[in-house]
Design a protein around this nucleic acid. Structure first.
Lengths: 159, 159
DNA sequence: AGCCGATAGTTGACACGTCACTCAAAACGT
DNA sequence: ACGTTTTGAGTGACGTGTCAACTATCGGCT
C-alpha cells in the first residue's frame, strides 16, 4: 500500500518498544523461575509437555517438532542434550526404520511434575493476574490477529 | 495466594499458546526479512539503532547495554562479532581508561540506512496493519500491564 | 602514599537455534 | 525389479545469550 514514511509513528514506536521489552523480559523471568525451581529450561519444559501429553509418553521426532512448532533439527539437538541429562531416551522405530521415538523417562516425568505448578503460577502471576478480563480478551484477540498476519506471510492466500 | 489449581484454565491455555506462537514466529519473520534485505540480524539492527541515535554515533559499552536492555557481556560479544564485519569499531576512552567507546562505522551507517525502511514496513505489515485502532490500544495497554508486573518481579516495591 | 571495594569491560564455557548438508530408508513411477 | 525422488533424522558450523570468572582501573578512606 504505502512504501513511503519509512519509520514508525511515535505512538507505534512506543508500542513497538513495549513489545520488545516484554518479549525480552517475560521469557527471561519465566526461564529464571523454572531453572531455579526445577533445573529445567523452557525448551526442556516444552519437550516434556509434548511427550507427557502423548498417551505413550513418546513421540516420533517429527511429531514432537509438530507439537512444539520447532524444526526437526532443533528437536534433534534438544533431545540430544536432554538425553545426556537422562530426561528423555531415544528408541528406534520398528515400522519405519528411518524413524526414532523420543520417550520421556521416569526422571523426566518427575521433573515436569515437580516443575509444572510453579511454572503455571509464574505465568498466571506475570500475565493473567496482570490483565483484567476485558484487556485479556483484547490481548488474546490481538495475538490472534498477528498470528493471522504471520500465517499470511508464506502463504499464497489471495494474490 | 493460591497454591492450588496447578495448571491454567482452558481459555488461559489457549491465550498462552497464542503468545508462545507469536513470540516464536514474529521475531523469526522479522529476522528473515531483515537478513534477506540487508544482511543484518535483529541484534545487529538494535545495536546500530542505539549508536546512530547517539549524537556522536558512539556509546560507551555500558550505555549501549542501557539502550538495548542487554547485559554488558552480551554487548561485548555482539560488538566483537560486528567489529569483525566492519559495522562498528571499538575505541578506548581517555577519561576512564577502563572504558571503551563503540563507534558506528560508515559501513554500519550505510547498512542501517539501507535496512530501516523495509524493516519498519515489515513491522507495520505484521503488527500495526493487523490490528484495528481499538485493539491496538488494548494491546499496548496489555503490554504495559505485563511490563509493570515484570518490573515488580525483582523490586521490593511494597512487601 | 597505600590499600580496598566498586566499577568497566572482556573472556570462556556452555545452552540454544538455524542453516546447509548428509545418510538411510521408504515411496513411487515405469 | 529398478532407479529416482521424497522423507525422517542427525551433524557440524556458526550466530546468539547467559553466567561466572578475570583484569584493569577508579575512587574513597586512612
Amino acid at each position: 500500500m504505502d512504501t513511503e514514511d519509512p519509520w514508525l509513528s511515535d505512538s507505534q514506536q512506543r508500542t513497538w518498544r513495549r513489545w520488545l521489552t516484554v518479549e525480552r523480559l517475560l521469557p527471561a523471568a519465566l526461564a529464571r523461575d523454572l531453572q531455579a525451581g526445577s533445573g529445567l529450561s523452557l525448551p526442556d519444559f516444552e519437550v516434556l509437555v509434548g511427550l507427557t501429553e502423548s498417551p505413550d509418553g513418546r513421540l516420533r521426532v517429527g511429531d514432537l517438532a509438530q507439537a512444539t512448532g520447532w524444526e526437526r533439527s532443533r528437536v534433534s539437538h534438544q533431545v540430544t542434550r536432554m538425553e545426556n541429562r537422562g530426561l528423555v531416551r531415544r528408541r528406534g522405530c520398528a515400522e519405519d526404520r528411518r524413524g526414532a521415538f523420543v520417550h520421556v523417562t521416569d526422571a523426566g516425568r518427575a521433573a515436569i511434575e515437580a516443575a509444572a505448578p510453579a511454572h503455571a503460577r509464574a505465568v498466571r502471576r506475570l500475565v493473567f493476574d496482570a490483565l483484567d478480563a476485558e484487556r485479556l480478551e483484547a490481548f488474546d484477540a490481538a495475538l490472534a490477529d498477528i498470528s493471522e498476519a504471520l500465517s499470511r506471510e508464506k502463504d499464497p492466500v489471495d494474490r
